[in-house]
C-alpha cells in the first residue's frame, strides 16, 4: 500500500532519533487529525497508534523517520503515517503481531494494538532490510 497523499498537501517528514521526538510526532499527528476533523475518539486512536509505532521504530529499528499527512481516496479523507527504519527487520511477522509477544520488556501490544486502532495497516519487513509500517485513519 502506498499512502494516497492528498494532492497539494505535502506530507511532512519527522526524524525518530530520540525519545523526545515522540512528543513532536504525537503533536504533529494530533494537528493533522484535527485538520481533517477526525472524531475525538479516532484522533486519540490515531495518536496512540502513532506513538506505538514511533517507539518501535526508535527502540527496535534503531531510529528512522515518519512521513505523515492528509490522504484522500474517492471522496474519503483521512490521515496517514508511514514509519520507516533500516534496522534488523522482523524475522517472524506472525509472532510479532501476536498479542502479548515481545522481544524486549514491553507489553507486546504495540503492533497488534495499533492494527486494531486504525482502518488500514500495512507492515513490510524483511530480516536485515528494515521495517516500514503504514497506517491510515479515515474520517467517518
Amino acid at each position: 500500500m502506498k499512502a494516497p497523499w492528498t494532492a497539494g498537501e505535502k506530507p511532512q517528514v519527522h526524524s525518530i532519533a530520540r525519545s523526545g521526538d515522540l512528543v513532536h510526532i504525537r503533536q504533529a499527528i494530533r494537528a493533522l487529525s484535527q485538520k481533517c476533523r477526525l472524531s475525538l475518539v479516532d484522533q486519540t486512536k490515531m495518536i496512540t497508534a502513532a506513538s506505538e509505532l514511533a517507539r518501535n521504530t526508535l527502540i527496535y529499528g534503531g531510529g528512522g523517520t515518519v512521513t505523515s499527512g492528509l490522504v484522500s481516496a474517492g471522496n474519503k479523507q483521512g490521515v496517514a503515517a508511514v514509519f520507516e527504519d533500516s534496522g534488523p527487520g522482523i524475522p517472524d511477522v506472525e509472532q510479532a503481531m501476536t498479542d502479548g509477544w515481545t522481544s524486549g520488556g514491553g507489553l507486546g501490544l504495540g503492533l497488534s494494538g495499533a492494527r486494531r486502532l486504525v482502518d488500514d495497516f500495512e507492515l513490510v519487513t524483511a530480516p536485515g532490510e528494515g521495517t516500514s509500517v503504514t497506517i491510515v485513519k479515515w474520517v467517518r
Partner: peptide, 13 residues
C-alpha cells in the same frame, strides 16, 4: 475519558 477508555480496550491492555 471515554476516548482513552476505548483506546485502551482496542489496544488490548
Amino acid at each position: 475519558s471515554p476516548q482513552i477508555a476505548q483506546t485502551i480496550v482496542a489496544l488490548g491492555i
